[in-house]
Design a protein around this nucleic acid. Sequence first.
DNA 1: ATAATGATTCGCT
DNA 2: GCGAATCATTATG
Length: 219
Amino acid sequence: MVFSENLPEKRIRRLLSRSFFHEEDVLSVAKNLLGKVLVTQFSGIETAGVIVETEAYRGADDRACHAYMNKRTKRTETMFRAGGHAYIYLCYGLHHLFNVVSGPEEVPDAVLIRAMEPVLGLDEMLRRRNLNRNQPKVSSGPACLSMALGIHKHMDGDRLWEKSGIWLEDWSFALDKDQIAADTRIGVSYAGSDALRPWRFFVKNNPWVSAYPKGLESV
DNA sequence: ATAATGATTCGCT
DNA sequence: GCGAATCATTATG
């Protein structure tokens, strides 16, 4: 499914409420975030994309999660906050990866946002990405997505339920269960058997999804 | 104080 | 496909 082909003239934009991040477990939140719109606004310039790929990370029992075994460090402290905060950290020394904290306070679960389809402020995103036309690599993959939206680790801990610099919206894009597939997460081979968990979720047949498995199983 | 290592991407080959 | 870029975080001494 491609979202930007049939954008309605009149878009009804609703800010995602705080309860969206609280009321369900991290796997459900990861699935529910598909089709939602991630928005940033800096100095009057608004940029946004429809989320098409996510990964769930669960602190309690998931070796791929930074807060595995509920490990508290300076970095993971943000994950222990209540659902709806941004968890942003530097990867490989140069990429700012964006996550949505989920669940109640003290439960260090988060959803990595891996890919989105641009729907607002494309020109600005192309500028940030140093590209001249729309294509998947504008915002396919977590580092590309962050660069397109201007996300930086200094926004770690920001509140996503308020229209400050970064927030989430519902544009009423409907997604059936059979349009969502699950696969193993990317780049977590160090996590042993937890690397096999099918905790990556993505929209089928969307060109911005960063990697497709051999078979496509609906969730 | 030192060393190892990524929830990655890009540009070549 | 491969290697480089590039550094905060973390564990260990």
